[in-house]
Design a protein around this nucleic acid. Structure first.
Lengths: 172, 172
DNA sequence: AACAAAAAGTTAGTCGCTAACATTCACCGG
DNA sequence: CCGGTGAATGTTAGCGACTAACTTTTTGTT
């Protein structure tokens, strides 16, 4: 993973072959793929799905689906410590600079999306509404995260806040 | 394109090689890639970006970003005739049944997203808010479209309506 | 009929990724 | 200290998406 991140920084993602990563790590290409299911998995991995889903389930029942998803995500992110967010940022910065990785990010978000949708259904949304709210929320969140990663502002929380503010309809 | 859609229906997307598509079309693999930049481009192509962007620019200035994006898309889709929507549906149905294509859909949406974001900025949004609202809207829209394509209900308009209703915060 | 431009073919290669099988390594009881 | 077992790693070979460089055919026009 270290080797991969170094190379991505040096030459960019697309110009880095899996073989080169393996080489720098002193390992075979096959070994690389045994540890990571794909080249993009080095950058895109988030184990936060259950946290988010739980936080959503704890949202007040009175809130509509979109608001509940928003509130849940905001709550979940408060538990992420600063050192972790620095790492997340380094990864996302590469993603934001590499158009070909946008698809990978979305594909990865599919699981998170399903988890959110399920949590919303548990709260009483229709499955259709749940899915829609989940994908809208994640779309906004990913967009805000990428922008945060690419900019200078250190605070992850405020990046998320601005995404949620827009979703809540408060932005002109 | 016809050859590709036939094969996707018969064997599924992943099980259809580019060579097989070219073969059925009576053409070389190279020729296929000269007409389509990638295998997934056969399914995912939408020339509606300018339409949507214009419709958004025509939204009342008083509306916040998200609401304007919603209203613009709804307005733009009313101009799509029924036969076109049948074709769109056939394509999207394959996308919805093929997880590996989800990323492709998102990658393709990037252009539409940029167009929407730009239109929102023209209306006075900050570029950050514009991007966020655009990606949320497209997330919701894509999600609703995929669900529509996979279901039985013929009316595309109402699928879009439900996406917009959720975005507007009216869904529990 | 001649010719320029556009489209299609040929060949060969890169890169991501997988399968099947062989090998080395690390740890653990005897 | 030995032997053995399971995990981690290596080897080879191959598929499929895609690209590059170059040649050939087709097409439309004068």
């Amino acid at each position: 993973m270290t080797a991969a991140l170094e190379l991505f920084e040096e030459r960019g993602y697309d110009a880095t072959t899996a073989a080169a990563i393996a080489d720098r790590a002193g390992v075979t290409e096959m070994t690389f793929f045994r540890h990571f299911p794909s080249k993009d998995a080095v950058l895109i991995a988030d184990p936060y799905d259950p946290l988010i889903a739980d936080a959503i389930r704890r949202q007040p029942a009175s809130r509509p689906a979109l608001a509940a998803a928003i509130g849940g995500i905001a709550a979940a992110w408060t538990s992420v410590p600063a050192p972790v967010s620095a790492e997340v940022r380094a990864r996302l910065r590469i993603v934001s600079r590499t158009p070909s990785l946008r698809g990978a990010l979305a594909r990865n978000s599919a699981q998170t999306e399903a988890a959110i949708a399920e949590a919303l259904v548990d709260r009483g949304s229709s499955s259709s509404d749940g899915r829609i709210a989940a994908s809208a929320t994640l779309g906004a969140l990913n967009s805000a995260l990428l922008e945060w990663a690419d900019g200078d502002e250190p605070d992850l929380g405020s990046a998320i806040d601005s995404a949620l503010r827009v979703l809540a309809g408060g932005a002109s």
